[in-house]
Amino acid sequence: MTVFIIRRLMQAALVVLIMSFLVFSGVFLVGDPTEILVADDADQAERAAVIESLGLDKPFHIQYLRFLTKAAEGDLGESFVFNEPALQLILDRLPATMELAIAALLISIVFGIPLGVIAGLKPDAVYSKFIMTGSILGFSLPTFWVGIMLILLFSVQLGWLPSTGRGDEIHYVFGFPTSLLTLDGWSHVLLPAVNLALFKLSAVTRLARAGTREVVHQDYVKFARAKGLTDQRVIFVHVLKNILIPVVTVLGLEFGGLVAFSVVTETIFAWPGIGKLLIDSIGLLDRPVIVAYLMIIVLLFVFLNLMVDICYSLLDPRVRLQDIKA
């Protein structure tokens, strides 16, 4: 276990290093932030001063090395726009995004698994076909369009739910700010969470259905029935425990995707999270924030991968951590 984790951490460090290079060089190539940062009527000397203060006059490798040494100290640079540490900007907005992603994850699990199991048990029933058609829509409708439709229907037409922002009453749980402790908070998060969840919900439904269809034909399910177990026990213990293995794996890996894809949803619903910050920063060519955002996402993915492998070994007794190809 310890050996496994140490090996994985070393690999993770390598991945993060490679990604930092890709991210930094990618951003380096895009646009010239001075055009936005320096006032139009500024003279040559003023312009040079700004460029020098931001370190933009140095060659690429110097800039990258400086970025790396600072990053090792937890300093991902200062935002050109806000004059605040970029990391702090991200961390301030991360809880809102996490809240949204977790709400979306819950929706995917709570609805996706039962829908998938129902459709998998009776694949020829009309309601199963209905569920599967719905999941295809969930896959193929563009997120931004669904988001706008949700707002039009539930906020504009029916007036049931707010269309923008996060609940105002923020409470702290273990030091993390959340608005989910109030009804107002939930009413704000519901529409964006559904919007963000739609894709994952479809994925979980299809995965649970495929798993169920495969597992119900296994000998061990028939043997469980031959023991005289009730249908409930066969489904909730024998079938469910087996299909949870792929579902948990995919959900864990896709959680990073939820966070990353929240960009679109946050923009539509004006959700004050890191996705919206990213879009704003790209518009302003605020390089340090973009880099910090991407680095945080990389770290998140690496961390989730590790967690998934650990969960996997807990769920499936046949898998031991040292056997997972690290």
């Binding site: 000998d219 399910v221 043997f223 031959a226 024998h238 425990k241 769920l315 007794p317």
Partner: peptide
């Protein structure tokens, strides 16, 4: 009661 042909497949692997 019934005993099945393939013992490798009869018992639930995760229980």
């Amino acid at each position: 009661a019934m005993i099945f042909q393939d013992p490798m497949m009869t018992l639930n692997p995760v229980l």
